[in-house]
Nucleic acid binder design. Structure first.
Length: 573
DNA sequence: GCCGTTTTCGGCCCGACTGTTTTCAGTCG
């Protein structure tokens, strides 16, 4: 069982305990455990089976949870969960996802009206049986009906690229409102998390009504859900929720810190404040009633004896401990990237010629690129066989003479076939400047076979890098079942790099595994996998993922000059 | 359920907003 599957069990258990009315802190303990397991780079199954393995060493895992995890790993079941599943239907858990309904209200609905399914809930609301209940009313009943309609949409996370585009546009438009002196997006969008559940925008404004009016009238806003003095909630076309908060200037830094999160990071930061006799909220840092800091984020972190922590790291995954020791990494920047080693042309499924791609890359300031069209297995994309590939490389060589100021490598994105052999034979691969090996097909194969395919590719003397290692598509399909520690070990041993594919749907490796790769001193390359001349625009998302993994310029191979990069890959040739 | 150089018990981050109340509980982030 994969970590994510085990994490999901504990999350479900937390949902059910909530319905049962369990102690909220106990529920949180289960949610923390779920997150801890989900964030692990190594397999929890391996950890349980390791002779030295002690789960209670993990943050938030005590004796009880350790025993439950061991039970899941060894039996595949969690008796407590199975028991609760008999008491509450899956639809009852879904009721918790309806905005405005929490565990208390759902419990009342279940007990008083004996509702079991979402259909029951809908019928009860339509028949007006909910409004008379104590603590409910006409409005709540209406909210439930609307929530039911949107339940598919609600809770759906959107890609960072989508969220950031929406946020950037609204921030730019609201910044023009008179009296708005500062405005920015906070939340998971600012942390550059690969998906966002909502948007948080923060503003300093003389007139909060004016900016809220402007937001309400914004073309991308579908409806206003709530509006108070300092906070407005709207739903954007497409269903994404956006919260606007208007704060005083002296609170801007505190509010930035507060609303950027993550929740887990903030809990630890506020505990630090408490330990120092301070109180930290979105308005500032206070000693008793006295305002101590809050104008800038730097001031807020300084008040709890920490240097400023980059938003991408704020997940309570060790960044606070690093900050305490003044060992935070200097994260890679977009401008550090010198080359892009993964792109396509009209030879396969790209839309631009070799020269057009090279010119577009050069215009973006890149100093070197690799042209890496598909190998023959990708027949849909008219993948290249040895003969066409060699002809393609000749074309690339011609283009080298037509453009100055950018180096072009003759590359190939070669499929690792289902039987673990390479799609092109060693002879032709040995002639390439740069070989990306990838899984495209058979992603659902059992772990052993996936492992064999990746290890064979890594051991192939001509392979430089494994591209989009898991093959996942965020929101569409999970990646292949990979036992990463073995892959990392082999990659380090054979000098094979790993890719962070910058495509916002892929972002593969993810932050957790890119961080683990860094621990194994495996060079990372951040590539766009461009299929068109505007494809380079997504490079930023690869860099964000690298930053979330704590990578520095030195950890990423394509920050090197072309000469240095060539030295690195020449070891293979 | 976790955690502990004040603690093995009693804490566990903190405030805004809504809808239902008539002083506040529940929900949300």
């Amino acid at each position: 069982m994969q970590n994510a599957a085990i994490a999901a069990l504990f999350d479900e258990l937390a949902d059910l305990l909530e319905l049962q009315g369990a102690n909220p802190f106990r529920v949180r303990a289960y949610r923390n455990a779920s997150r801890t397991i989900g964030d692990l780079s190594e397999s929890i199954v391996e950890l349980v089976n390791a002779p030295e393995g002690d789960l209670t060493q993990l943050a938030g895992i005590g004796k009880d949870l350790a025993a439950k995890i061991e039970t899941v790993v060894t039996t595949g079941k969690l008796p407590q969960l199975e028991e609760l599943r008999t008491q509450f239907s899956p639809d009852m858990v879904r009721m918790l996802r309806i905005p405005g309904l929490g565990p208390k209200k759902v419990a009342v609905l279940i007990d008083e009206l004996e509702l079991k399914t979402l259909a029951d809930l809908q019928a009860a609301a339509e028949q007006g049986r909910i409004a008379p209940l104590k603590g409910f009313g006409k409005k709540t009943e209406q909210t439930i009906l609307e929530g039911l309609k949107q339940i598919e949409q609600a809770g759906q996370r959107v890609l960072l690229s989508t969220a950031k585009a929406a946020a950037d546009r609204i921030v730019a438009d609201l910044a023009k409102v008179p009296g708005v002196s500062q405005i920015t997006a906070a939340g998971s969008c600012r942390r550059r998390k690969e998906t966002c559940g909502d948007l948080d925008i923060l503003a300093v404004a003389d007139d909060s009504a004016a900016i809220m009016d402007q937001l309400a009238a914004h073309p991308s806003v579908q409806k206003v859900v709530a509006r108070g003095e300092t906070k407005q909630t709207v739903i954007l076309a497409g269903g994404l929720q956006l919260d606007l908060r208007v704060v005083p200037s002296e609170s801007y830094g505190a509010a930035m810190q507060y609303f950027t999160g993550s929740k887990e990071h903030n809990i630890v930061i506020r505990r630090r404040a408490q330990e120092r006799g301070l109180k930290l909220n979105e308005y500032g840092v206070y000693r008793g009633e006295t305002y101590v800091a809050g104008q800038t984020e730097q001031d807020v972190y300084a008040a709890v004896d920490l240097p400023w922590i980059p938003p991408e790291l704020r997940e309570n995954r060790g960044e606070i401990e690093l900050a305490e020791k003044h060992q935070l990494p200097t994260l890679i920047e977009l401008d550090d990237i010198q080359g892009d080693l993964h792109m396509h042309t009209t030879a396969t499924d790209g839309t631009a010629s070799i020269l057009e791609m090279a010119e577009a890359a050069k215009a973006r300031g890149l100093k070197y690129i690799a042209i890496t069209d598909h190998s023959k297995r990708v027949s849909m994309a008219h993948g290249l066989d040895a003969e066409r590939l060699r002809a393609h490389w000749k074309e690339i060589d011609k283009v080298r003479g037509q453009i100055q100021g950018i180096e072009i490598l003759c590359g190939i994105e070669c499929d690792i076939l289902e039987d673990a052999t390479m799609d092109l034979d060693d002879e032709v691969l040995s002639e390439a400047d740069w070989v990306i090996a990838v899984l495209h097909y058979g992603l659902k194969q059992p772990r052993e076979q996936i492992q064999k395919r990746l290890l064979n590719a890594i051991r192939n003397p001509h392979v430089d890098v494994i591209g989009h290692p898991t093959g996942r598509m965020i929101g569409h399909r999970p990646g292949a079942d990979i036992h990463f520690p073995e892959i990392f070990k082999a990659a380090a041993e054979h000098g094979v790099m790993l890719e962070i594919n910058a495509n916002p749907v892929r972002l593969d490796l993810d932050d957790i595994h890119a961080a683990a790769a860094k621990d194994h001193v495996i060079p990372i390359v951040i590539n766009t996998d461009s299929h068109a001349t505007n494809g380079f625009e997504i490079l930023e998302f690869g860099v964000y993922q690298a930053r979330r993994a704590g990578l520095t310029k030195a950890d990423v191979a394509n920050t090197k000059s072309f000469a240095e990069f060539q030295k690195l890959i020449d070891r293979k040739r």
